[in-house]
């Protein structure tokens, strides 16, 4: 049985090998489905809910890309990838792109032959402590025990931070977020450090959130963004400009609800270009002219996606902070649609 399926698949693959891949965009169109490498479960960013539907901040970006390329945000298949398998899965063609909280670093962008095409969330490493410790700054953590996940960049950041401030700490290594939370609650460590977005989610679910504070220091830069394979520039453009379209939409006030109406009524030339009424922006990346309008209408613009999944009205309650638009003092800045 197994053998037959194996052989059958080999046969099928031999047939399909005839249509050698021209580029990811063509492959996705031919397949009729976008395969998005996602997290194995990260609160607010990407996980299947009780009804098996994937939801989250990263998931919505994938759906927007699916809507832009295939015209249907539901034609996205999410493949969970772990921290170890994610980049190999992308490089081997198992997934079309990765949107799973991967930090844009020099070596990943160059040595791993990947392309980070943008930043959909600016994160950074922070600390959470119990309020009754009376600490208001991470620099007062001298001699503290710190819960830290092993084998991550956060571990290195932590060492750097304490070394450069000339203070000491005792690490309590944990395997994952859940264990860290348990150790921290049990009092095994004074402080818990991870990405600030994760800290906020953890704090929100503690029995008594008000007795814990997240310290103001952010000790690292963690720009998280979608990743594609190196060398497939057309596909990189599609992903990059779908993200930019969501940002521009927020900047110009185009929302999921009013996109259709804006397309017919707006006089702003950039909005008209974005929504495919004027010019032929979609065709330049191999899409049709309504592509970005569909992307916006899938789950709304960047601000709407943020608010729905991780924003202040959700239990996670993240402030926009660095992820505010540049017009509001943040870092999210889309190049013009021109």
């Amino acid at each position: 049985m197994k053998k037959s399926v194996f052989l059958g698949t080999l046969a099928a693959s031999a047939l399909m090998a005839g249509f050698a891949s021209a580029g990811t965009l063509d492959d996705v169109k031919a397949r009729g489905e976008l395969i998005c490498g996602s997290n194995t479960g990260l609160t607010g960013f990407g996980a299947p809910d009780a009804n098996n539907n994937w939801t989250g901040f990263d998931v919505d970006l994938c759906r927007a890309i699916g809507a832009a390329v295939l015209g249907d945000p539901s034609k996205v298949k999410f493949v969970p990838t772990t921290g170890e398998t994610r980049f190999t899965a992308l490089a081997s063609g198992e997934v079309d792109l990765l949107v799973r909280n991967s930090t844009w670093t020099y070596s990943r962008d160059t040595d791993l032959k990947l392309d980070f095409v943008g930043v959909n969330y600016y994160d950074g490493q922070g600390f959470m402590v119990k309020k009754d410790l009376g600490i208001l700054s991470a620099k007062e953590l001298d001699g503290a025990t710190v819960c830290i996940q092993t084998g991550t960049t956060t571990e290195l950041n932590l060492a750097d931070f304490f070394k450069s401030n000339n203070i000491s700490y005792t690490p309590v290594t944990v395997a994952d977020d859940a264990e860290a939370q348990r150790q921290y609650m049990a009092g095994a460590c004074d402080a818990f450090t991870t990405d600030a977005s994760g800290l906020a989610a953890t704090r929100a679910t503690l029995p008594d959130p008000d007795s814990h504070i997240i310290l103001p220091e952010i000790i690292s830069k963690e720009p998280l963004g979608p990743v594609v394979r190196h060398g497939d520039n057309q596909w990189g453009d599609v992903v990059r400009w779908t993200l930019n379209a969501l940002l521009t939409a927020e900047e110009k006030g185009v929302t999921k609800a009013n996109a259709e109406e804006m397309a017919s009524s707006s006089t702003d030339p950039e909005v008209r270009r974005l929504l495919g009424v004027e010019g032929d922006m979609g065709a330049m990346t191999g899409l049709d002219k309504d592509a970005f309008k569909r992307a916006i209408m899938a789950n709304g613009n960047y601000g709407e996606i943020f608010a729905a999944n991780i924003g202040e009205s959700t239990p996670i309650g993240l402030a926009r902070g660095l992820n505010e638009l540049w017009t509001n003092g943040g870092l999210q800045y889309s190049p013009p649609f021109r």
Binding site: G46, A47, P48, Q181, A204
Partner: peptide, 13 residues
């Protein structure tokens, strides 16, 4: 892990 990723059940061990 998926169950814990739900904000409702985050922290269950």
């Amino acid at each position: 892990k998926i169950v814990r990723a739900d904000i409702n059940w985050k922290g269950i061990y």
